[in-house]
């Protein structure tokens, strides 16, 4: 079924936040907000959950640490032990201080890139992806609130529009998607 979406445009982040708070208070479900920069404090109002990317990064980092440790153990201790600078590589633990730098670097490498890739995939931002912001001005100085009619069936379209119009918008537009 075709859905109707109301896009309400604001020219100030605080006004939008105020408006969202009022609308949510009345039981309106705000689907999304488009803005040129992160609006602080909007997430709890419109119910955006906190991302778990941080945990991801930790896990990628841990993987990196393990890979580096096992890799070095294999290369330097098992496969081809060498005697370097009077420090024969007979055991991992005795040579550990000189392995720490690479283990650290590899941990950071895996954590940073793992997280960056996950971030791009989760945001669906990849080279060649089409832009989905409702109005080109949302990357400049305008803020747009997206309200889906389907998600707010307790209100009529008219009421919804009227309620939104009270919140200090500068433009409003309804589209079929």
């Amino acid at each position: 079924m075709a859905d109707k979406v109301i896009y309400a445009m604001y020219d100030d982040d605080d006004v939008l936040k105020d408006g969202a708070k009022k609308l949510v208070g009345k039981g309106v479900h705000v689907a999304d907000v488009y803005s040129p920069f992160p609006i602080h404090g909007i997430d709890p109002i419109i119910g955006v959950k906190h991302t778990r990317l941080g945990i991801n990064a930790f896990l990628y980092g841990l993987t990196g640490t393990m890979l580096a440790l096992f890799g070095i153990k294999y290369f330097m201790i098992q496969d081809w032990p060498m005697n370097i600078g009077g420090k024969p590589s007979f055991s991992m633990i005795e040579n550990l201080p000189s392995f720490i730098p690479i283990v650290f670097e590899f941990t950071v490498l895996c954590a940073a890139h793992g997280m960056a890739i996950t971030y791009l995939l989760r945001n669906k931002t990849l080279p060649g992806m089409p832009a989905r912001n409702p109005d080109p001005r949302t990357t400049d100085d305008k803020f747009v609130m997206e309200v889906r009619v389907n998600e707010n069936t307790q209100f009529s379209e008219k009421d919804l529009q009227a309620m939104i119009k009270e919140t200090g918008i500068i433009e409003i537009e309804e589209r079929e998607v």
Binding site: Y34, S35, D43, I46, L53, R122, N123, T125, M129, A131
Partner: peptide
């Protein structure tokens, strides 16, 4: 720009 949209969740992740 990788198709950047600038919605709330994307900024949250950003």
């Amino acid at each position: 720009s990788f198709g950047w949209t600038g919605n709330a969740k994307a900024w949250n992740r950003f």
